[in-house]
Simulated scan of single mutants.
Amino acid sequence: MTRLLSCLLAIALLIPVPVAAWGPLGHRLIAGLAWDGMTPEARAEALALLEGEDDPTLAGIANWADQLRAEDPDLGRRSARWHYVNIAEDDCHYIAARHCKGGNCVVEAINDQAAILADRSRPRAERLQALKFVVHFVGDVHQPLHAGHGHDKGGNTVQISIDDGSRDGRGSNLHALWDSGLLNSARLDEAQWLARLRTLPAPVHAPATGSAARWAEASCSAVIQPGFYPAGPKVGRRYMDQWRPVAEAQLRAGGQRLADMLNAALASSQGN
């Protein structure tokens, strides 16, 4: 039995495990902002694809890809590497042949799934799945640590102790802090966050095609800034107040860029 458990543990360690970006709240916020920026035609196409879902909204499907490990383990394993790309070791310059072998990274996953979504000759189920992936992965790529260092697994191995004034010494890691800790420390609900983010300037509209690599590079640029990695294990309000605006800007940009991508894919679908 001991030998069996050891073997199972070894196998588990070899299976890539997707890490959440922004947490459920952040992904829903990006989806909600994207809906604001979508054209009527793109909205209508999205709603047609979403018909029959438990929550037939972009926000309602925004976290689907993070739930695959439990709901569809095979697809969860196959898509595990699609949630991130490690480019910080190369000064945030994305090189597909080096950073995305076999197309298994968030950059190429966005491109591939957007192409499936845009192709109306494909079955509706495939396009719906692609929509779910696109909504989630565009959120992922705007979380800086999903385009960060490979040696620390996007900050997952950087252990920290959070002192946010509520529970001193709460153990966590840097990735989790960026997933949800920065947002939760503001103590706003989803509606309040949306109202706040809508006041921020949106990025300039740009062609969605080929943009995913630039989004990853821009996200990564935050990771290599001085102070992004805390000087010590204890992280308090000073760090959160300094870096929360960066997280907010990333969420705002992610929402607009997702809208641009969905407008391009859904309003000008191929295969007609």
Rank of each mutant, 00 (worst) to 15 (best):
D36T: 11
D36Y: 01
G37W: 04
M38R: 05
M38P: 05
T39E: 13
T39L: 13
P40R: 11
A42G: 05
A42L: 06
A44G: 04
A44L: 09
E45N: 12
A46L: 05
L47P: 01
A48V: 08
L49H: 09
L49E: 12
L49C: 12
L50H: 06
L50A: 06
G52T: 10
G52R: 09
G52N: 07
E53H: 02
E53M: 13
E53L: 03
D54K: 15
D54I: 08
D55F: 01
D55S: 10
D55W: 01
P56T: 08
P56Y: 08
P56S: 08
P56C: 09
T57N: 02
L58D: 08
L58V: 11
A59R: 12
G60K: 14
G60H: 13
G60Q: 13
I61W: 08
A62D: 01
A62R: 01
A62P: 01
N63M: 04
N63I: 05
D66N: 15
Q67C: 03
Q67W: 02
L68M: 10
R69L: 07
R69Q: 11
R69V: 11
E71G: 00
E71F: 05
P73W: 09
P73H: 09
P73S: 07
P73G: 08
D74H: 05
D74P: 00
L75E: 14
L75K: 11
R77Y: 14
R77I: 14
R77E: 12
R78F: 05
R78N: 06
R78Y: 04
S79E: 14
S79C: 07
R81S: 11
H83F: 03
Y84H: 14
V85Y: 04
N86D: 15
N86I: 01
N86P: 00
N86Q: 14
I87F: 07
A88H: 04
Y94V: 10
Y94H: 10
A97T: 13
A97K: 12
R98K: 14
C100K: 02
K101N: 05
K101T: 14
K101E: 15
G103D: 08
N104T: 11
N104Q: 15
C105H: 04
V106H: 08
V106F: 08
V106Q: 07
V107Y: 06
E108G: 00
A109L: 03
I110D: 02
N111V: 14
N111R: 15
N111W: 03
N111P: 00
D112P: 00
D112W: 04
D112A: 15
D112Q: 13
A114E: 14
I116G: 02
I116M: 12
L117I: 11
A118W: 07
D119N: 15
D119Q: 06
S121P: 00
R122I: 03
R122Y: 04
P123V: 00
P123Y: 00
P123I: 00
A125Y: 00
E126P: 04
E126C: 07
E126V: 03
L128K: 13
L128W: 10
Q129E: 13
A130M: 11
A130I: 12
K132V: 06
K132N: 04
F133E: 12
V134I: 09
V134C: 06
V134A: 09
V134S: 05
V135S: 05
H136D: 07
H136K: 03
F137M: 10
V138A: 02
G139C: 09
G139S: 08
D140G: 12
V141E: 04
V141C: 02
V141Y: 02
V141F: 02
V141L: 11
V141Q: 03
H142I: 03
P144V: 09
L145I: 08
A147D: 09
A147K: 06
